[in-house]
Design a binder for these strands. Structure first.
Length: 251
DNA sequence: AGCCCTTTTCCTGATT
DNA sequence: CAATCAGGAAAAGGGC
């Protein structure tokens, strides 16, 4: 595996980079989007997550116009990047890496269309994208998205607990029954295996002392910021107005 | 160095 | 009784 891609597949079962886009799961699509936002410094605020809550086949069937609708100017880049991956596969990445490893961001941009003009000031992690003016959300999601690229960690594997939980919910094939939707439409979910969840979160944070007791304390802090809403049932939580990226495909 | 933010750790007490 | 929930308080850790 290519070193600079390692963080994207490090502890994941699905190696999206080695799967043809046509066969990507929804989760893979999300990973790809995060990769794009990270590597190409796309402003995720332009991207409508709900439009990309689809699998790879649906993604590949999207026209350039649909990409524009779903992500504005970013849609152009995303479309271009996707077509490159479909055509050149992993070599699209490796070429880039080998060309100028010390300045990959700038170099990657050279592979975008000449008139791209990718905004470099707004770096936002796709799955943390938030309404630009939503301050609470901003805090929770990290609107400047620095975590996207500056420290080889946690892009595809979300850095925040609620994103970790969300992504686990979005990939049922990977969460081993740890989390379950209680009411998908309303964003209500249940922690089925609390100890396993804590252990998994602990692995993510490289902290083998993590417990559900402590994890749940962190989750309760989300009530204040509107990431989660209180549900009056044991082990049941609900995404709040400031959580995003968990909704059903709205296309 | 210092601030901000999220998460961790610990704790007391209530609830299921 | 064991597990969970509720938050307060303080500290850790990372980013800027």
């Amino acid at each position: 595996m290519f070193p600079f891609l390692a963080k994207y597949v490090a502890d994941s079962d699905s190696f999206w980079t080695s799967i043809h886009p046509e066969y990507w799961s929804k989760h893979n699509v999300c990973e790809w989007l995060q990769f794009c936002c990270d590597q190409y410094k796309l402003d995720a605020n332009c991207i409508s997550f709900s439009h990309f809550n689809i699998n790879g086949l649906q993604l590949c069937n999207m026209t350039q116009e649909e990409f524009l609708d779903a992500a504005g100017i970013c849609g152009e880049y995303l479309y271009f990047i996707l077509q490159n991956i479909r055509t050149h596969g992993i070599s699209f990445f490796t070429d880039v890496e080998e060309t100028k490893p010390t300045n990959k961001d700038c170099d990657l941009l050279t592979k975008l269309p000449p008139d791209s003009g990718v905004p470099s000031s707004l770096l936002t992690l796709f799955c943390s994208s938030v309404p630009a003016r939503d301050k609470a959300c901003e805090r929770a999601g990290g609107i400047n998205g620095q975590e996207c690229h500056s420290h080889g960690r946690t892009n595809l594997q979300s850095s925040h607990l609620w994103e970790f939980v969300r992504d686990l919910l979005l990939s049922p094939e990977e969460n081993g029954g740890i989390l379950e939707w209680e009411d998908r439409g309303q964003g209500i979910f249940r922690v089925v295996k609390s100890e396993a969840l804590a252990k998994m979160w602990g692995q993510r944070k490289k902290n083998d002392r993590m417990t559900y007791e402590k994890l749940s304390r962190a989750l309760r802090y989300y009530y204040k910021t509107g990431i989660l809403e209180r549900v009056d049932r044991r082990l049941v939580y609900k995404f709040g107005k400031n959580a995003h990226g968990w909704q059903e495909n709205k296309i």
